[in-house]
Design a protein around this nucleic acid. Structure first.
Lengths: 338, 338
DNA sequence: AATTATTGTGCAATCGTTCCCGGCACAACC
DNA sequence: GGTTGTGCCGGGAACGATTGCACAATAATT
């Protein structure tokens, strides 16, 4: 059995009380230098570490934060996680990552598990399936600090951090227009996600600016964000079966971009000759391998950092916070059409 | 403040003792049906959840396992994590993922943090930098269950699960030979990783079988597994500056494959006309985008599942386990040379 | 020399839960 | 009627760490 050393072990070994040992290890000025040295040396020798669980119980906080996101295999989220860890780590917090794989049920179970006292706060990016956030509202009402990133909700009054999805989408769509595309489709995730709404808006604005008609038939939603390749396949095939086939497509995420490229390949549709693609994408690999995909890059690492900083400030705030912020970070357009 | 309900709250509300409430919620046969119903109903009403931290302290286990790997942005590891979660989740365990980014110091800090009583066991894939495993040996000696996967060490006597790296490498190298390559280079991670040794062996065996000479100059190690693109760049450029340039290259990992492709692109070396590539790769994207990369696929998801199953069995075993297993799973060769 | 500070240390309560032990009723037995 | 049994419940210790309070011994003060 794995039994780490405790204060009691040290106390017994040195013939002291646990309180003396405890104080020797921190208070320092209440304890005689000799005793202090004795304790510190011994603790060093046996490599003593305070039991974080006992501390959590006592302090009523766990010094850990929970993260809920769709999947770490997604480059965007992997980069966000790195940002989260970089800050949490520095400030002495553990990070517990949970994946929803875009399922509402999974998200709910994960978050409730995290919340039942094992984390001090939550970083949440909603799943594609989620429409009911009442369980989150419940936790928030009861005082669990949370910050939303990427896929946010206005039903809960707290900090939010997102990319400038409208502007990013506008630029990507305008790029397609400038490339000569006139029938631009939009492949996106489920329609109740905040990012989908915002990205659709940017797309519409670009069309409007250039006097192009908005065609509902060109908008294709994937309820599970392309988690099932079949979703993407059906969507693309429907687009390609239209009388007026699109000549460009604005894709709303990493996963959908990958999925769409796969379908175009299968259909032997040449990119970018027959179809120009632009989309949100943070994948280095895709970027490297596909020189024809103009991409909207989100500052993922930075988003993770800022979200974590906001959350930890909420957690460590001595007074209840009522003033919440919605932070919007600019994207950048990486034009690739060689 | 976020203050979940406790047993005491229920006891006070119903005029009972905490012990009675506790028993009503589990023991069940020592408590009268009426009291039981009363308690259960009330607990349901306020959505009571036992405090996992208090439980952990009492039970001296946390029902969570720690994972140490290089980075989740790597598709192989992302798939392993999914496998780990699928099993841990079913058996009621939390999963805490930590990333080393191939740094020894980071690995050590992460694992010691996990070990200081907050996890019941460890799943470890060593970082590229790690040579000294004494801190792990220390934990293992003191009884912390651990299972190694992918990058293992024989210095600690416990379960291991790996892919059949030798066979996979042999097949990939032989594939290159069959494609007509005669000067086959090998780009790999740091030389002290178990996978590097095994993969080099498979490579050598294939050369030997086909009576090709082994040339030390064709072997290039990247001490940080290609975490810094510069490593890969230097390695490839050195290879291409040799008098007898290689005509094929066997690459040992996802990240190195991506890195290498980027360098070949930069150098305007055509793949596969001037350079045939084969390598270990679990990236769907790379696979999709690069139709010329023949890849050795590892059963990553399954590896995660098996490792977790082994670990949980160790953790839950009533008797000390001395009989350890080294499980080797077959890889599969995905030939792509269109 | 007696009183008051000062210093160093131990006791005990606390966090939320479980579980051993013991106690109170009431019924059944000799 | 006294003993034993049984069903139901409360008291209290334990898990490991921190911390207010008490108290001893020594030093400083009048």
């Amino acid at each position: 059995m794995f039994e780490p050393f405790t204060l009691k072990d040290i106390a017994k070994a040195l013939g002291l009380s646990t309180s003396t040992v405890s104080r020797a290890l921190r208070d320092t000025h209440e304890i005689s230098p000799e005793t202090k040295k004795l304790v510190l040396d011994y603790a060093q020798k046996i490599n003593y570490r305070p039991n974080p669980i006992a501390l959590s119980l006592k302090e009523r906080r766990s010094k850990s934060i929970g993260v809920s996101l769709s999947e770490v295999a997604n480059q965007y989220f992997a980069q966000v996680v790195n940002g989260i860890e970089s800050i949490a780590y520095d400030r002495g917090y553990h990070v517990i990552i949970t994946q929803t794989h875009e399922f509402y049920e999974r998200e709910k179970v994960n978050i409730q598990h995290l919340a039942s006292r094992s984390v001090d706060g939550l970083l949440v990016s909603l799943s594609a399936e989620t429409t009911d956030t009442s369980y989150l509202q419940n936790l928030h009402q009861r005082g669990l600090p949370m910050v939303f990133f990427d896929r946010v909700t206005d039903q809960i009054n707290t900090h939010q951090i997102i990319a400038n999805n409208e502007k990013g989408s506008f630029e990507a769509t305008e790029y397609l227009i400038n490339q000569g595309c006139r029938r631009i489709a939009h492949l996106t995730s489920s329609d109740h996600l905040s990012i989908s709404v915002e990205r659709l808006n940017g797309y519409k604005q670009a069309l409007a600016k250039h006097n192009l008609p908005f065609n509902e038939a060109y908008i294709k939603y994937c309820e599970h964000g392309g988690m099932f390749q079949q979703e993407t396949e059906v969507a693309i095939k429907e687009l390609m079966n239209l009388k007026e086939k699109p000549d460009g497509i604005f894709v709303a995420s990493d996963r959908l971009s990958i999925g769409a490229l796969a379908v175009f390949k299968e259909l032997k549709i040449k990119v970018p000759q027959e179809m120009v693609i632009a989309g949100f994408c943070n994948s280095d690999v895709l970027d490297l391998m596909c020189p024809t995909l103009t991409s909207v890059r989100q500052p993922a690492f930075e988003m993770g950092q800022i979200a974590t900083d906001m959350l930890l400030n909420l957690i460590e705030s001595k007074y209840p916070v009522h003033d919440f912020e919605k932070k919007i970070l600019d994207t950048s357009l990486w034009v690739r059409n060689s």
